[in-house]
Design a protein around this nucleic acid. Structure first.
Lengths: 197, 197
DNA sequence: TAGCTTGTTGAGCGTTGCTCAGCAAGCCGG
DNA sequence: CCGGCTTGCTGAGCAACGCTCAACAAGCTA
């Protein structure tokens, strides 16, 4: 039919890589303001200036799109937290902790939306963050020079839940000085990870 | 169409209270098997042997229904955890901790679905569990005879995140004996709640 | 120019949350 | 038995969303 005879669609035609990157970028921008489950494909497409159909051309399913966005967010954090080689192990852990708190301070809303989005709702999306946490635990343990057994792994993962929650509420209401917070987190982590309970 | 488990007559007509209770009950049964966001009103209605419309007669919105279900779940746990009066304060806390671990052991799937469902997705639903945690923190602190300041509150809340995560993974893979787990949780809680950081 | 590749679109289908006008089950006073 | 009232309950239907499909069009090459 085409009752609307080709509106002035001098819309740009992008390369596949560009388009994908643009869509993921839009997801990263929208993630903090919108709970991941409420974010509609339509909104993303409109924001990108394209039709819904095109988004499905790049991401077969909504889930696939969201996992891509989540993975991008996880990679950003991962890159930021990487330990700086060449310094003493103790300092490396302290640095990671420091950068982690800094990360949450800076991207407070988006980080929590990310963590919570990962925790609830979709298991596929949750896996992406679980995987990132696993990697963090591995790095933490190996940096500390401690064996990576099942118990320690559980404890450090639980410590992450502790740290996420505490840093989140601390960012809202700083009841501790920043160094005190860091020291407390470090102390609990040490307590958990050193043997003998 | 009314192939419902209740075949008293062609169509059973229930009192408003009965129907509400039945619907909430169905929600409690479905919560463990189905992520709260994926649970459709249609499924609940079909399971109750009623039309979708009727559910919207009792709960104006899907969110309202889910918060009612979540609140019911929270109340169950709350009742189970209540400290037994008349015993020493120390024992009361130990008892609560013990019952909490027992609760997660028993209702593992539904509890985690509940907590995660509360954590992610819908903020309204999240509030219900946040409220329950607040009440638990109050009881814990007052039982321990400790002041209820902002810092302690944050720390105990974060400890809950720690405990939920740890008990959850521990139930999957018991790397510690049960008494060891309880002692560890208790020790960390004590460490956090006693002053001086 | 034709022809090929590929980024892009609109029309449309099934499901789901939600609305609304109205039916029907039970109970009353005549 | 009959009207009339209350109220639990339903089916048709709308809007939004995820997702599909056939086809168009922009850019390249021969």
């Amino acid at each position: 039919m085409t009752a609307s005879p080709t509106p002035p669609t001098s819309r740009s035609r992008r390369s596949a890589g560009d388009r994908r990157a643009q869509l993921v970028q839009i997801g990263l921008e929208l993630l903090p303001t919108t709970p991941i489950q409420e974010l509609t494909i339509d909104a993303v497409a409109r924001r990108a200036g394209i039709s819904r159909s095109l988004l499905f051309h790049y991401f077969a399913t909504k889930r696939e799109y969201y996992t891509a966005v989540t993975r991008a967010a996880a990679d950003l954090m991962w890159a930021h937290l990487q330990p700086r080689p060449g310094t003493p192990a103790d300092e490396q852990v302290a640095g990671m902790l420091d950068r982690y708190v800094g990360w949450v301070e800076t991207y407070r809303e988006s980080h929590l939306a990310f963590v919570r989005g990962a925790g609830g709702g979709d298991p596929w999306v949750a896996d992406v963050y679980a995987e990132t946490r696993q990697r963090l635990v591995e790095v933490a343990l190996s940096t500390l020079g401690l064996p990576d057994d099942a118990l320690r792994r559980q404890l450090v993962l639980a410590w992450f839940a502790f740290a996420e929650d505490l840093v989140g509420s601390w960012a809202d209401e700083p009841t501790l000085s920043r160094p005190e917070l860091l020291a407390l987190l470090r102390e609990i982590l040490d307590r958990l990870v050193r043997s003998g309970h």
